[in-house]
Each structure stands twice: as structure tokens, then as C-alpha cells.
């Protein structure tokens, strides 16, 4: 059975709104645009570095809409004291990247 994406659709809509507010170029947000948003969470930089590694699935230095949603999901988990995993759980890989 298709593994449901861990990001709920209502959360995805919220993350998409943030994504669009950061004026993506060709549907991508570069690291310098995403960095202030994630730093806003007041999480330690090494945590954010790991969040980035896990969400920048194609390691192109930019996040697309789905990768951005993964990053936001991981940040919210970390804010609720959920440790950021060392590798991306399969349920968190966006269906578009499987």
C-alpha cells in the first residue's frame, strides 16, 4: 500500500503559504532565503544543518515546495522536543521524490 506522507495536507497548505511568501524562483527557494525562516525557530544551527541535509533530498542547495514542507515538518518536530532523525524516515520522503 502506498505509504501516506507524514506531512498532513492542512500542514502542507500552511508550509506552501510560507514557501510562496518567500518568493521562490522557478519553484525553488535558495538556502539564503530559507535560512532566516529556519533560524527564526531559535533551534541550534547544528540541528538546522541536519534539518537541511534531510530536507534537501536532491542536495541541490535549494528546496522545492515538497522539500520545504519536509524542512518545516522537521523544525516543528524539533520544537516539540522530537529529536531530528539521523536519516529521513520513508514516511517523510515526499511522494514526488520516491
Amino acid at each position: 500500500a502506498e505509504l501516506a506522507w507524514a506531512v498532513k495536507s492542512e500542514d502542507k497548505a500552511k508550509y506552501d503559504a510560507i514557501f510562496d511568501s518567500l518568493s521562490p524562483v522557478d519553484g525553488f527557494l535558495s538556502g539564503d532565503k530559507v535560512k532566516p525562516v529556519l533560524l527564526n525557530s531559535k533551534l541550534p544551527v547544528e540541528i538546522l544543518g541536519r534539518v537541511w541535509e534531510l530536507s534537501d533530498i536532491d542536495h541541490d542547495g535549494k528546496l522545492d515546495r515538497d522539500e520545504f514542507a519536509v524542512a518545516m515538518f522537521l523544525v516543528y518536530c524539533a520544537l516539540e522536543k522530537e529529536p531530528v532523525p539521523m536519516s529521513l524516515p520513508p514516511a517523510l520522503v515526499p511522494p514526488s521524490k520516491r
Partner: peptide, 13 residues
């Protein structure tokens, strides 16, 4: 082993 992110693509490293 977690891949230590390459600073070239990671704005936090």
C-alpha cells in the same frame, strides 16, 4: 552514519 553535510549546499554549515 549521518553524512556530514557538505557546506557547499548547506547554508547552516
Amino acid at each position: 552514519q549521518f553524512p556530514t553535510g557538505s557546506s557547499s549546499t548547506n547554508p547552516f554549515l
